[in-house]
C-alpha cells in the first residue's frame, strides 16, 4: 500500500503540547527516547503549541515540572537528530528558528504529510 512512499525513519513522534501545564510533551519525548533506545530511527515533529518545547530556556518551573530543556539535551545522545517543526505554528506564535534551543527544519503542510507517510509508526502526543 505504501510501496511508492520513501521511508525516512521508523518512528515519528508528533508533539503538540507546550512543555508546561501538562505532562503530554514530557511523556511524548519519553516515548521517543525509548524508541531510540530500542534501536529505531526516530524523528520528532513539533506542531501547534508543541513548538514551544523547542524554545530556549524551558527549564524547571516553580511548580516542580521539569520543562523540556534537559530532555532536548539528551536527544543527540540517543541519536535523535531528525527534528522538524510546523513552520505555520512557529509563525503563529510570533517566533523564529533563531530562538530555538536546537536546530529543527521548518516544514510546510505538504512536507508534513510526506513526513508522516514516510514513517512506519507515528505516535501523536
Amino acid at each position: 500500500m505504501q510501496a511508492e512512499t520513501v521511508l525516512n525513519g521508523d518512528v515519528l513522534v508528533i508533539l503538540r503540547h507546550p512543555p508546561h501545564g501538562s505532562s503530554w510533551l514530557r511523556e511524548g519525548l519519553d516515548a521517543a527516547l525509548v524508541a531510540a533506545a530500542f534501536g529505531q530511527t526516530v524523528s520528532l515533529l513539533f506542531q501547534g503549541d508543541g513548538v514551544l518545547g523547542l524554545l530556549q530556556g524551558q527549564g524547571p518551573g516553580p511548580l516542580g515540572q521539569k520543562g523540556s530543556s534537559a530532555t532536548l539535551d539528551m536527544l543527540a545522545m540517543y541519536d535523535i537528530e531528525s527534528l522538524f517543526l510546523d513552520a505555520r505554528s512557529l509563525a503563529r506564535l510570533g517566533l523564529s528558528t533563531e530562538s530555538l534551543q536546537l536546530p529543527a527544519s521548518p516544514l510546510e503542510p505538504p512536507s508534513i504529510a510526506e513526513l508522516i507517510a514516510g514513517h512506519r509508526l507515528v505516535l501523536t502526543f
Binding site: 521508523d10 518512528v11 516515548a31 525509548v34 524508541a35 530500542f38 529505531q40
Partner: peptide, 20 residues
C-alpha cells in the same frame, strides 16, 4: 510493562490507533 512494548507493538501490528 515498559514503553518499549508500545514501540514493538506499533511496529508489529497492521494498525495502531490512538484514542486521546
Amino acid at each position: 510493562t515498559g514503553l518499549g512494548q508500545l514501540i514493538d507493538l506499533g511496529l508489529g501490528v497492521d494498525r495502531l490507533v490512538t484514542f486521546a
